[in-house]
Design a protein around this nucleic acid. Structure first.
Ligand SMILES: [Zn+2]
Ligand SMILES: [Zn+2]
Ligand SMILES: [Zn+2]
Ligand SMILES: [Zn+2]
Lengths: 135, 135
DNA sequence: TATAAACCTTGAAGCCACTTCAAGGTCAAA
DNA sequence: TTTGACCTTGAAGTGGCTTCAAGGTTTATA
């Protein structure tokens, strides 16, 4: 099959497939006589793993690590399990940070409403509150 | 004052200050006879607003919009208030997305634990679960 | 006085995971 | 025959910086 059919089977763009090849995640495929890339079912499986892992926000480096194990005929299952747990922890931490940020934004908004809104120099308005967040 | 002192007063790096200048957020400053950048207190105020807004995750485009108003002697307070509310909403939405992602990661981890962990081809293991997340 | 340490300058490249653009070549249907 | 869908490559753009390379300037110390 050609690149577009491969890409569609994994729900990614064909330009992403070319990018994965250029970055070493996917091996260079056979070519048809006209120079077009030619893929088979094993390429679909590989790309689906890449797409699934990307949809879980794994980095291409992480994915390369998983694929490298498989290419050496070593089972990557343990590595994948560990990565899932670690990524979940990272996301959890990120959520906490964003919750703090949201609170700061809402607090600033509420407080800002109590100040004049025609202050050019920002000495007595919400702009001043933003400026003084330093540290 | 020179660039490092300015940067320190706003708790940013001096390379960031040069980057802000190159991207038009900060105007080109005067120069000392030796070519070094020379700043004053108004530069500190401007950079503090930039730094405060960046710490709230505003984009440089947003910040440029705020500064453009001030540079035209129009009060940016209303704009800032609106941006605070809008950014808070964006963060809230992002948190929801990350919470869903975290749940997917934890669920996959739990389910993956019930499968063998020595499957090279990924037909009966957590790797297969990752691959089949398509769509 | 020599020299090291801390500061300053510029321009370019690197980061991440792509997308978009430019400028073409290939092939099937109408 | 011409339209349109598909394919190719390489380069540049995205955002907000940091890092690197290759210097010049100033202050402190030996
Ligand atoms: Zn597995
Ligand atoms: Zn575990
Ligand atoms: Zn204001
Ligand atoms: Zn409001």
């Amino acid at each position: 099959m050609r690149i577009k059919e491969l890409a569609q089977q994994a729900y990614v763009s064909d330009t992403a497939v070319r990018y994965y090849e250029s970055s070493g995640i996917l091996p260079p495929p056979r070519r048809l006589p006209n120079g077009y890339r030619d893929y088979d079912q094993s390429d679909v499986e590989r790309l689906k793993l890449v797409a699934g892992a990307r949809s879980l926000d794994f980095s291409l480096d992480d994915i390369a690590e998983i694929l490298a194990l498989r290419d050496r005929r070593e089972a990557p299952c343990r590595t994948v399990l560990d990565m899932l747990a670690q990524k979940a922890d990272e996301i959890q931490q990120r959520i906490i940070e964003l919750q703090q940020l949201e609170k700061q934004l809402r607090d600033l908004h509420e407080l800002g409403l109590t100040f004049p809104t025609d202050d050019i120099d920002g000495k007595n308005c919400v702009c001043h509150l933003v400026s003084e967040r330093a540290g």
